Simulated scan of single mutants.
Amino acid sequence: MSPKHADISLTLERLWQFSLQYYSMRGVKDACLNLQNHFKGNVNLLLLLKWLDEQQVCFKDQDWLKVEECLGHSETLLHSYRDIRRRLKSHVPDALYRESLQFELQLERCQQSDLVDCINNLELEKNLGSPLTLRYCRQLGAEHLYPAFAEPIDNTANM
């Protein structure tokens, strides 16, 4: 890796496995849900940014909009589905509700696929500035949540 450019290998499976492991770390799930429910943050975007932070790479500042735009369609679909699922929670059997949660996970995975495609089409560079997760929290006005995302994940999870 040159001081400026970075070559990384990001696949959907790599990001998905990282996300599952990272999301299960103490405090991360609660902070993610807080970011999503109170600051309109996107958890999949945060998980991608954390993966990039772990790789010590970032995209250019002018590419933030491209990354956020790639979420457009899937974000609308996820919000709509999540709202319906929440309203149905007390009206459907537990088994059906669990199935609806599994379907939501499939939608999340599709959104991660969009993010992977987007990132793989951007020029990445060594991150010499603030972590991307911190930048995202600041952008959302949720900087106080950043400490929950600051801890590095076990190196074996970097895949």
Rank of each mutant, 00 (worst) to 15 (best):
W51E: 06
L49M: 04
V57M: 07
H38I: 00
L45N: 14
L52N: 11
N37Q: 08
K60I: 00
Q36E: 07
L45P: 14
V43E: 06
V43G: 13
D53N: 12
K60N: 13
Q62S: 14
N44Q: 08
W51P: 11
Q36P: 08
K40T: 04
L47N: 14
K40D: 12
L49Y: 06
W64L: 01
V43S: 10
N37C: 04
Q62K: 15
N44W: 02
L48K: 13
K40P: 03
Q62M: 06
D53I: 00
F59Y: 09
K50D: 05
D63V: 06
L45W: 10
D61G: 12
H38T: 03
H38F: 01
E54M: 10
N37V: 00
L48S: 12
E54C: 12
L46I: 01
K60A: 13
L48Q: 11
E54N: 15
D63M: 07
W64A: 07
L48I: 02
L45G: 14
Q62I: 03
L52R: 14
H38A: 04
L49D: 01
D61V: 00
N34R: 09
N42D: 14
D53Y: 07
Q36F: 06
N37F: 04
Q36Y: 12
D53R: 11
Q62C: 10
K60R: 15
K50E: 04
N42M: 02
F39D: 06
W51C: 10
F59K: 09
K40A: 13
F39V: 02
G41Q: 01
L46M: 09
F39K: 01
V43P: 12
